[in-house]
Amino acid sequence: MSDTMNNDVLLVAEKLTKRFGGLAANQDVNLSLERGKLHALLGPNGAGKSTCINMLSGDLPPTEGRILYLGQDISRTSAAQRSQLGIGRSYQRTNIFPKFSVFENVRLAAQSRNQRAWKIFADAMNDKTAVDKAMAAIEEAGLTSRAQRIAGTLSHGEQRQLEIAMVLATDAQVLLLDEPLAGMGSDESHQMVELLLKLRPSRAILLVEHDMDAVFAVANTITVMVNGQVLESGSPEQIRASTQVQQAYLGHEEMLHV
């Protein structure tokens, strides 16, 4: 039967299309995210990678096409509903609560799994489930020593780690990561790559990234987009050997020979 019957396939995009007026930012994009696999999305600026992630996360409604989560059509659900289903995302531009502590950023994320809004006289800090989950996510993202710092005072790289910790605290099974390495130094990128490798076995990950070293180090599958369309999709070796991809990246082809 089709891929969607496979238990490990969590998220599938079928002929996903987004038009802004006459411009097709995404045209017939097909993607599939499997548990235990990291799927990287490559492409030059303006290729439509962020639009694609925004549709998958529910931030943008698709114009056409379907998104299936465990075989169920979720194309019309809101971002909040998708988060509750288990689809978490991080943002290209760091999107945190800068005035809260690192702990509170992640605790809020964890609290979203067990919302007991009517308990208005309970102390949020007594919600042990959320507190423990937050501490675990902070540790997994390698931020334990920073837990009490105000998030806005962290270094850029640490803020990117915080983004990941917040996604982890929501128990997301599908991680949609929009350029988690953007603006990171080499040490920080190295740490992030380690983190991605650690997260990969138990989750399905979509990674949008420009850092080719990192992509080839962690990806099981690579999809290359150009002008809103999928140019090529396959294993890292296939992509590296593809003449089509090399042409699209003309002038950058040395990047593919790392």
């Binding site: 909040a80 999107n95 609560f97 809020l108 799994r113 809004a117 917040m166």
Partner: peptide
């Protein structure tokens, strides 16, 4: 805590499932 989160960054609150 959710209210204060909404004030700080409502978009992120939604994407975290609120």
């Amino acid at each position: 805590k959710v209210l204060v989160g909404i004030k700080s960054n409502e978009h992120r609150m939604k994407s975290m499932g609120y």
